[in-house]
Write a protein that binds this DNA or RNA. Structure first.
Length: 268
DNA sequence: TCCTTATGTACAA
DNA sequence: TGTACCTAAGGAC
């Protein structure tokens, strides 16, 4: 679930249900109890996302900083909220509740601490203030592989293992190429594609990367909806035939994550 | 019922 | 590079 598009969607979903209300704030699981007590009954004034980081703004001064990590999940529902014991943070008003489970980070922070988080993140394709040239400056000076650079949140914020694999496939880029060998034109195309793919990801709340002419329907095959909810070219499709060339999709470990790619289609 | 795995990150060595 | 951390689902028994 949690790549950048998920977090931006959450920012808007939290706002839709709670903005302008003063929800009851609790931490049934306990780890956020002290902060929850301080926020209980305060107005949720704004929400924001940068990369995979979510910020909930209360009474214009306090922020809850949330990072889902690998396991974190958020579930919205209509009131009344059911009993629970694994929820780190629950907001509940007269109409809705929202439960946060298993996050890497859930902390009450100040405005200055929030600024520090922004400062250590690269540009986010989903944010209006993003400058793709800032990301390219780092990419173009690095001997690290483009596959690793796309996952480095200091370089570009919000891309995770699915978008990384998919955008490299869509541009025929060998994941093991060094960042310094990526041309400005290639970077511009990758960035523009990420903006488009991730915006659609926010809209649909899932990752779809397969072009209309390559969908199973267009190719006369049964659809395969993957675990992340959408249709993709290579992510978690190891040993399956490539949708374009029919060759076998490969997988390998890279920086402690699973990389997926089609060696035939991605030689550039 | 146990084991593996997961769209993430931080820290130690 | 390895390991620790948080949770839940799916598959092997």
């Amino acid at each position: 679930m949690p790549e950048g598009h998920t977090i931006h969607r959450l920012a808007s979903d939290y706002a839709d249900r709670f903005s302008g209300t003063a929800p009851r704030v609790t931490s049934p699981q306990g780890k956020f109890s002290d902060a929850a007590a301080l926020l209980d009954g305060a107005e949720l004034t704004r929400t924001e996302a940068h990369g995979k980081h979510l910020f909930l703004g209360f009474r214009d001064t306090d922020w809850v900083h949330i990072h889902l990590g690998l396991f974190g999940k958020v579930a919205f529902g209509d009131a009344p909220a059911p009993p629970t014991d694994t929820v780190r943070l629950r907001l509940a008003n007269d109409t809705s509740y929202v439960d946060l489970r298993g996050p890497t980070t859930c902390a009450l922070i100040t405005d200055a601490e929030k600024v520090a988080v922004h400062d250590r993140l690269g540009p986010d394709p989903l944010r209006a203030d993003a400058d793709p040239r800032a990301a390219y400056r780092r990419v173009s000076r690095s001997r690290t592989t483009i596959a690793a650079l796309l996952m480095d949140q200091k370089v570009i914020a919000g891309v995770g293992n699915v978008y990384r694999a998919e955008v490299l496939f869509r541009h025929g880029i060998d994941p093991y190429r060094a960042g310094r060998d990526i041309t400005p034109a290639e970077w511009d195309a990758v960035w523009a594609d990420l903006v488009e793919l991730m915006r659609e990801g926010v809209r649909n709340n899932r990752i779809d990367t397969v072009r209309p002419e390559h969908t199973p329907e267009a190719m006369g095959r049964p659809p395969r909806v993957d675990d992340h909810g959408g249709e993709v070219y290579v992510y978690r499709r190891a040993t399956l035939p490539c949708r374009l060339c029919g060759g076998e999709i490969r997988t390998a470990g890279l920086a402690a994550r699973n990389l997926f790619w089609c060696p035939a289609c991605q030689q550039g």
